[in-house]
Design a protein around this nucleic acid. Structure first.
Length: 415
RNA sequence: CGGGGUGUCGUAUAUCGGUAGUACGCUUGCUUUGGGAGCAAGAUGGCCCAGUUCGAUUCUGGGCACCCCGACCA
């Protein structure tokens, strides 16, 4: 994409009322636009990042047997009243129509998915069933904060599973946990599977996936030796104590951001909606349900918080809006322009996503913007590189600079 | 929801009870061109509603919005 065609511009300063690093940088770089407290629009660059994250999540969920669907976001109030959430969950938005009919907007979708599943599940042969969606969620938070990391509207992947036995649930739960860890790993984040409370409808523990960052809202204890990690809200141990799992490591306390969670919902919802199946003996039973969430927009925020530096955003390659930022310093030099156009064409034909800074602007401004965008590889085309016969390549994250010919570049980027 | 703070061109800021200024951005022209250029000419602003006052962006009250701390958070 040509940068002269790119919708949005960078700005030198962040709005003074944005304090969080993610909001400041994403707004300065033109990735997002704030609509109101806790609600952001995602512009071209931001949307590209979200789509990259979604693609990774989709891939991993499909691999463990998830089927993607898209549920309504405007919900009737009845199922929410049926489960008690209408009166007991205070983050549920309540909307009234002009005829005084009541609705809500989805903040989680058990109330929608369970009645849907009820229409199609009648036999143990229909189980297990795993469906998921990626979509907008709405929560009536009293206080939105931390930029895109805790909003009233956000994007979440929510997956729901239905099982005939606890064993089958446990089997899938373990699969899902591994899939989750792969998602974070592919984004370059280290997430700890953290024991936490199961929420208001179950006494069982759940796993929250926590990325260590001071921008997070949760406090966790983690072992420096094994993988044990626990949310302090349910922890029975304390900081500096010996880990109770491996009996050798020491527990440390840290701030973390929750980027996913997986719950055993038991039969809460299948009973609420009287969803039953017949087992092999013809007996009616309630399936066991699981709920598995990943915060897509929050993951984007956490990636900003973890990787950005004093010059701007830094995206891991797997979720970067573009792979290459092609910066031409043409100074009205037609040869340079031609060379940049040719390189753009070749890279694009090789399947590499390129943002081409074809603006008539000075080098300083172009480099500053390039740093701010955080695209992994910058390739400079100028009179200098033309004379040298090789392009200047700078890795955004490391600052490592090299000089490559077109064929070397394409070889490097396509292997 | 409790407490605190802030509302001035698109953004960041200054000043002032009496013509609202600066920087960046934007428009036009010329020059410049490897780390946010220079000159010249432009366009764009007082959150809303009351009150006080000859006169309010400024003072007072109310509202709204946003931010921070806390509480809350399937």
């Amino acid at each position: 994409m040509r940068q002269t065609h790119l919708f949005t511009k960078t700005r030198r300063e962040a709005p003074k009322d944005e304090v969080s690093k993610n909001a400041q940088l994403l707004i300065r770089a033109g990735f997002v636009h704030k609509e109101m407290a806790g609600v952001y629009s995602y512009l071209q660059l931001g949307k590209r990042v979200l789509e990259k994250i979604e693609a990774i999540v989709r891939d991993e969920m499909d691999k463990i047997g998830g089927q993607e669907i898209r549920m309504a976001t405007l919900h009737p109030s009845e199922p929410w009243k049926q489960t008690g959430a209408w009166d007991n969950v205070d983050v549920v938005f309540k909307i009234q129509s002009r005829t005084e009919k009541e609705y809500t907007v989805g903040q989680s979708e058990e109330e929608i998915v369970t009645p849907i599943a009820k229409e199609y599940i009648s036999s143990y042969k229909d189980l297990p069933l795993v469906v998921y969606q990626i979509g907008q969620k709405y929560r009536d938070e009293l206080r939105a904060k931390s930029g895109i990391m805790r909003g009233r509207e956000f994007t979440m992947k929510d997956m729901y599973s239905f099982h005939d036995t606890q064993e089958d649930f446990d089997r899938f739960y373990a699969l899902a946990k591994d899939a989750y860890l792969r998602v974070y790993d592919r984004i370059g984040l280290v997430a700890k599977a953290t024991e936490a409370s199961g929420g208001s409808f179950t006494k069982k523990l759940s796993y929250e996936f926590m990325v260590l960052t001071d921008a997070g809202e949760d406090d966790i204890l983690y072992c420096d030796t094994c993988s044990y990690c626990v949310n302090v809200e349910v922890a029975e141990s304390k900081e500096n104590e010996t880990c109770t799992r491996c009996n050798s490591g020491t527990l440390s306390r840290a701030k973390a951001s929750e980027v996913g969670n997986i719950f055993d919902l038991g039969q809460k919802y299948t009973k609420d909606f009287d969803l039953t199946y017949q087992d092999a003996n013809g007996e009616k039973k309630y399936p066991i349900m699981g709920c598995f969430g990943i915060g897509i927009t929050r993951l984007m925020g956490v990636a900003v918080e973890k990787f950005a530096d004093d010059k701007g955003l830094v995206w891991p390659e797997s979720i970067a809006p573009f792979r290459v930022h092609l910066v031409e310093l043409s100074s009205d030099n037609e040869e340079v322009k031609k060379e940049a156009a040719e390189l753009y064409r070749e890279l694009t034909e090789a399947g590499i996503e390129v943002l081409w800074d074809d603006r008539d602007a000075r080098a300083g401004e172009k480099f500053a913007d390039s740093d701010l965008f955080g695209i992994p590889l910058r390739i400079v085309v100028s009179e200098k590189t033309l004379a040298a016969g090789k392009f200047e390549c700078v890795e955004r994250a490391s600052g490592h600079t090299s000089h490559k010919s077109i064929s070397e570049l394409i070889g490097h980027l396509t292997t």
